[in-house]
Simulated assay, not measured.
Amino acid sequence: MNPFTWEAAQHAAGAACAAVDDICRGDFKKAFCEVRPPGHHAHRDHSGGFCFLNNAAVAALHAIGQYGLKRVAIADFDVHHADGTCNILGGREDVLILDGFQQALFPYAHIHHAPPNAIYSPFPEGTEGIALRRTMDEVWVPKLLEYKPELLIVSAGFDAHREEDQAQLLMVERDYAFLGRRFSWILEEIPECRGIAAVLEGGYNISSLARSCAAFIMQFASTEK
């Protein structure tokens, strides 16, 4: 932390809420919040893993409380398990959590069970992008089409890139482009969904983070499957 951390954390959570406002008012269908600090390790009662306020969870609760949404989905593809998101939103019938992460890595999701409203998709060390793509098409997309969320929040972490040194997955830019394209397509396939708010999570190699964000956003902005 530094003297500016708390202010930055409030702005990050506020940006996620502003994206929900813009979507629920009908101003936009998609938003990408390029924020720091990230949020998905922040629990209801403590910080963790560089996270102080859980931006995605705050945005979901804002959508439910302010706009009365009954079904909000959160899809998290950061390399680390979204322990804070599951702590805050686990067990709720109005939230679905899809969480892909590296197995046996901080914060060690393998030591506890997923809440009933969460689907964990763990990947072993050395996993390449084809496994992530297969999980998206065979697990996440069918579940989202079945759930029909009124809002989709994406915890977009890019620290599974092969150039990152905090983890050992081997994703590259085209994998993140694939995810952006699929999320955009899902929005077109679910009439009940008002929009998608993507919130930046991890990503610590500045070069691969920039390239991965650009690849994701370019496809996220498209309507092509």
Rank of each mutant, 00 (worst) to 15 (best):
S212W: 01
L105G: 04
R133K: 11
A221S: 15
I186N: 03
A12I: 06
C51E: 06
A15H: 14
G91T: 05
L53P: 06
R134P: 00
G126K: 02
R92M: 10
D21N: 10
E163C: 11
G65Q: 10
E125S: 15
E93T: 13
T5Y: 11
L151H: 00
K30Q: 08
R25V: 02
V95S: 06
C193Q: 15
A221G: 02
G100K: 05
S47M: 12
R211D: 14
E34T: 09
D83F: 03
I186W: 04
A12S: 13
M136H: 04
G26S: 05
F77Q: 02
A114L: 05
K29R: 13
A109P: 11
L145R: 04
M1H: 08
Q102R: 07
L96H: 01
I190K: 00
F158K: 10
F123D: 05
N54D: 02
L151I: 07
S208Y: 03
G202H: 02
Q103I: 06
E173T: 05
N2A: 07
A177N: 14
I119C: 06
F178V: 02
D165M: 15
S47V: 07
F50C: 14
D22T: 10
I190E: 00
F183A: 00
E150N: 11
H112I: 07
L179S: 03
C17M: 15
L53D: 07
G129C: 03
V58N: 07
A57I: 09
L89M: 02
P115Q: 01
C24H: 03
A109M: 09
V79G: 11
A109F: 13
I186M: 07
R71M: 11
Y120H: 13
M136F: 13
Q66C: 13
F52H: 07
L53S: 00
R134G: 02
Y67W: 10
H112C: 12
K70F: 03
I196P: 06
G14V: 02
I196L: 05
